Simulated scan of single mutants.
Amino acid sequence: MRYMVLLAAVLSQVGHTEELATKNLNQLLGQIVTMRAHFDQHTLDAKNKPLQQLAGEMQVKRPGYFRWETQQPFNQLIVANGQTVWIYDPDLQQATKQKLDKQVGNTPALLLSGDSKKIAASFNVSQEKTTNKQQRVFILQPKDKEAVFDTLRVSFIGKQLNSMQLKDALGQRTDIFFSQVAVNGKISDSVFQFTPPKDVDVIDE
């Protein structure tokens, strides 16, 4: 009987902790209406061997608008206008068109641009303890078994997003660091529009 009471208390505390973590994350993300930043992206294998390094610029506007443009070492553009996501590879002369999932979704860009109130529907959320009082770190685990990552680590310094870390089932890790961050400035909707060039192959998914 005592064991059952203790177990119920532990489960209740876990639920409360997850609810509080989700509330704290929603509060931080909810303050980001627009965001511009430079990003540096590093991918490592399960043995921490570097696989790829990328850099570029990103812009986000809630709800459902984002532009993620890789500039080095190759060009790639991912852009969404609230309804459609385009992935454009100039070197391959190819553009892929997809319907935007209006849920928070399985990608960091959708997490930033989506409805923060839907996070609990898509992720189990916990909050790490940190020694830096200004830093807040959240761990998100997708509820969708087909998600492209197992865990997503989101880090804030104060109210500003400063990094993300994705890990997949094979142990591969991708670290994304943000710099030159500007929040809640004006961004035109035209930034999130894309028309494929005439000589580009279009794949409609």
Rank of each mutant, 00 (worst) to 15 (best):
G64A: 15
E69V: 05
A109E: 06
D89A: 05
G114D: 11
K117F: 10
G114T: 14
P73G: 09
L112R: 01
K117G: 12
G82N: 02
T107V: 03
I119F: 03
G64P: 11
A55I: 10
E69K: 06
W68C: 02
Q59V: 10
L77H: 05
R67V: 10
A55G: 07
S116H: 15
P73Y: 13
Q103E: 07
Q76M: 14
G114V: 12
G82C: 04
L112T: 04
T84F: 05
T70H: 04
Y88E: 03
Y65G: 00
G64F: 07
D89G: 10
L110I: 02
T96V: 13
G56P: 06
D89T: 10
R62S: 11
R62Y: 11
A109M: 14
G82T: 06
G56D: 09
S116A: 14
D89N: 11
L92F: 11
P63T: 15
T70W: 02
P90A: 03
Y65E: 06
E57R: 04
L100C: 01
A80F: 03
W68N: 07
R62H: 12
D101E: 14
K99A: 13
G64T: 14
R62A: 12
F74E: 14
A121C: 05
Q71V: 14
D115L: 13
N75H: 09
S116D: 15
Q83F: 05
R67N: 12
N106S: 14
P73N: 01
W86N: 04
D89I: 12
T107A: 03
G105T: 11
K97H: 03
Q72M: 12
Q59C: 07
L112D: 01
P108D: 11
T84G: 01
F66R: 08
L112G: 03
L100F: 08
R62I: 14
S116K: 04
V79P: 01
M58C: 06
T96P: 07
I78P: 00
K97M: 15
W86R: 03
N81F: 12
Q93G: 08
R62M: 09
L100W: 07
P63C: 01
K61L: 13
D115G: 04
Q93H: 14
D89H: 05
P63D: 09
Q94M: 13
F74D: 09
V79Y: 07
F66G: 14
F74Q: 03
V60I: 15
L92W: 02
I119D: 02
A95N: 09
G105E: 08
N106W: 09
I78H: 09
A120V: 14
D115N: 15
T107K: 04
K117Q: 15
S116M: 08
D91I: 12
A55Q: 11
Q103H: 10
Q93V: 07
W68A: 00
P108V: 09
T70P: 00
V60K: 00
N81L: 05
Q94L: 04
G64D: 10
T70V: 15
I87A: 02
V79Q: 08
W68P: 09
G114R: 02
D101P: 05
A55T: 11
Q93S: 05
S116I: 10
K61I: 09
P90E: 13
N106D: 06
V79D: 00
N81A: 05
I78Q: 05
Q94P: 03
E69Y: 09
M58E: 06
I119Y: 02
S113T: 04
L112E: 04
D89K: 05
G56E: 11
K99Y: 04
M58P: 07
D115R: 08
F66H: 09
T96S: 13
P63I: 14
D101T: 10
D115W: 08
I87K: 03
